[in-house]
Simulated scan of single mutants.
Amino acid sequence: MANYPEFKNVTTVACVGVGTIGGGWAAYFLSRGLRVQAWDPSPDAEDKLRALIDAAWPALTALGLSQGADKDNFTVHADLAEAVAGVGFVQESAPEVLELKQDLLARLAAATAEDVVIGSSTSGYGMTEMAITAADPSRLVVGHPFNPPYLIPLVEVVGGEATDKKATEWASGWYDYIGKSVITMEREIPGFIANRLQEALWREALHMVDNGEATVEQIDTAITEGPGLRWPLQGPMLTFHLAGGQGGMKHMLDHFGPSLKSPWTRLEAPELTAKLSQDVIDGCNEEAHGRSINELIAQRDAGIIAIRQAMAGLSAAAAVPAP
């Protein structure tokens, strides 16, 4: 069993794959004062990574940089072994292709020291199925982030059947140490927790568009101006607890439980026909009202920063004892 390093002694990390997710991770690691060694087979990987870091840096600055944070403290390598040499942690963020993940994780396990934990940014695969070709799968852990990783704090952590439990514990502690909000899952389930919840909402939304029951903009407004305002504070379960009034969740279940049998939801995915695809695409373009992707990203980031800062203020106020 490996003797994993103390968090404070990890000063350099590797980002393997630097697309939207991997590049977002790189920006976040840099903001925490870490050095990043990146690897990506794309010939223009360095230019794309630098552009992503530059775009993310204002948001990270607004949220607060760690001492020693330097957005230029990264290198991009063509050789995988060179990219992971001397690092204390690896974050893999390759495309969601199972065979690619299996091969890459096996190569990473072989190229890194026995005390280096390797986290995968997979959004759906379990580590058990991704680790089957690795000679040493004990240090392979899922560290599932949310886009953009430099802004959204949640990381879901779960090991595979062959993962050392101490490696999973170390990964959870590491993500927490660098400022992430961590869910350590007891066992693997397809899609993890948050994506399972997102998928249910996504499928229902597609059904409503497909049946002409709601437009794309109406669906988004239904969340942003409705339950979405409550979820950052208490999530769906505690929100329903409060919906039961003084009786709490018990009253909620007693009163509304029978409605679970009502045809309010259709969890089977609709067929993604050409018409449905085009309807969703057209709806998004209409809702954007001419705003470019970059403009929408800037507005999203500014909104997330404001929400996180407001939430931090509420948490700080709650922690102050009443006079």
Rank of each mutant, 00 (worst) to 15 (best):
M1L: 08
P5G: 09
V13L: 14
C15T: 13
I21E: 06
W25M: 13
L30N: 07
S31G: 15
S31C: 05
V36H: 11
A38F: 09
D44V: 15
D44Q: 14
A45H: 05
E46R: 07
E46A: 13
I53M: 03
W57H: 03
G68A: 08
A69D: 04
N73F: 01
N73W: 01
T75H: 04
A78E: 08
L80F: 09
A81V: 02
A81W: 00
E82D: 15
V84R: 01
A85K: 14
G86K: 08
E92P: 04
V97D: 14
V97G: 00
K101A: 13
D103I: 01
L104V: 15
L105W: 03
A109E: 11
A113F: 00
V116W: 01
V117C: 10
G126A: 11
G126N: 09
T128L: 12
T128W: 11
I132Q: 07
S138F: 00
R139V: 02
V142R: 04
H144E: 08
P145V: 08
P148H: 02
I152R: 00
E156W: 04
G159Q: 05
E161K: 15
K166Q: 13
G173A: 06
Y175Q: 08
Y177W: 13
K180F: 06
M185K: 01
I189R: 13
I189E: 10
Q198L: 14
A200S: 13
W202H: 12
L206F: 12
G212S: 12
V216I: 12
I219K: 07
I223N: 04
L233A: 13
L233R: 03
A243Q: 11
G244C: 09
G247I: 03
G247D: 12
M252E: 04
G257N: 06
S259E: 14
L260W: 13
L260R: 10
W264S: 14
W264M: 14
E268R: 13
K275S: 15
V280N: 06
D282H: 10
G283E: 12
E286Y: 01
A288K: 02
E295M: 08
Q299M: 08
I305P: 02
I307V: 13
R308A: 07
R308Q: 15
A312H: 02
S315D: 15
S315V: 12
A317R: 09
A322F: 06
